[in-house]
Design a protein around this nucleic acid. Structure first.
Lengths: 167, 167
DNA sequence: GCGCATTTACTCGGATATTTTATGTCCGAGTCTCTTGGG
DNA sequence: CCCAAGAGACTCGGACATAAAATATCCGAGTAAATGCGC
């Protein structure tokens, strides 16, 4: 089991986007150089986020991306599910119904106990991810991780990189 | 994110193996036909389980596999980690240290907050998987899922398929 | 100097390669069982 | 009838193909800004 690298990129991008002033956008190219990741591939990930409704995109010369809703309303789970897809990690192939001593049951039969346990664990995983928001992460990064100098540098970079479509 | 199919096979095999009498083994070929899965590939998965210490293998004509310890002491987490490897699903590439406004910090720096959150969720997932044992699943399958006829059929199949090395 | 049409540069979005991972298959080393011949 | 030796058959374990997915890249459609021209 392994999460794609795009999850990490998307999460960091969301944190950066959350600090933009209202009406400002950031192009994928800028976000890519900010994190030193392949620009074209990050663009793809951001498109997926846009289709999932986590970010909004504006095309055109002074276009870019911003969060589609308040940072307090974007959870880490939203981002992970957008990038990875909301399918469950464990897929039950119902192999209990096969072989010489199969389980007999129609469509409404109780679920396979192994699948149930796996899905319960996934529910716990999702619940944990849903309990933390982008706003929370961004705040704590500023207060607990960055020095005032680094904070300032980041703010200046954002001010220089941001675009203001149709202002 | 997606779990390999081998996880499902391994879990079901563990349940079957848990019902063997002490000293009995089951060959990979028999387990494969019991679940109607590719024999050679299942053998590979079982080998991985053996290396992880979840099952024991006996080579030779009347060889096979059995649980390496009591079914009460084998959790679903043991099986999942054996098949998938015990690496974490989320790998932090520390991209916060890159780019024009990097995080500055040495080796002992506090962890990336995004990685922390992801790992907390994984811990919850693992905890849930560790809380259920193969014995528990096997018992509940017998009592809540199988009819007496199906239970009987399975027991007969096991008796016919089991091997007894060096008896 | 000002307004408008045109060009230009830069954006996102989707179609296209390449690399890694998961899936599936095959053959060899080893071990127990069965057969067979002799005592 | 009993025993022992050898052949045979079946086991696991690891090396070798194939299919799927993740990673990475490129080019086209579209939009806003910048430019240049006429007034």
């Amino acid at each position: 089991m392994r999460l794609t690298e795009g999850v990490e990129w998307a999460a960091h991008c969301a944190v950066v986007l959350s600090k933009l002033p209202p009406g400002a956008y950031l192009p994928a190219t800028r976000l890519a150089e900010y994190h030193e990741v392949p620009p074209a591939y990050l663009a793809k990930t951001l498109s997926v986020l846009a289709r999932a409704g986590v970010v909004e995109s504006v095309p055109g010369r002074s276009g870019g991306f911003r969060l589609a809703r308040r940072a307090e309303d974007v959870t880490l789970l939203d981002i992970v599910l957008a990038v990875e897809g909301n399918d469950l990690a464990f897929r039950c192939a119902e192999i209990r119904r096969r072989g010489p001593a199969p389980f007999i049951g129609g469509k409404g039969s109780p679920a396979c106990l192994i699948a149930s346990a796996m899905w319960r664990a996934e529910a716990a995983w999702r619940e944990e991810l849903a309990s933390i928001t982008v706003a929370e992460i961004a705040d704590r990064v500023d207060r607990e991780r960055l020095t005032p100098a680094a904070r300032e540098r980041a703010a200046e970079w954002r001010a220089a990189a941001a675009t203001w479509p149709s202002r």
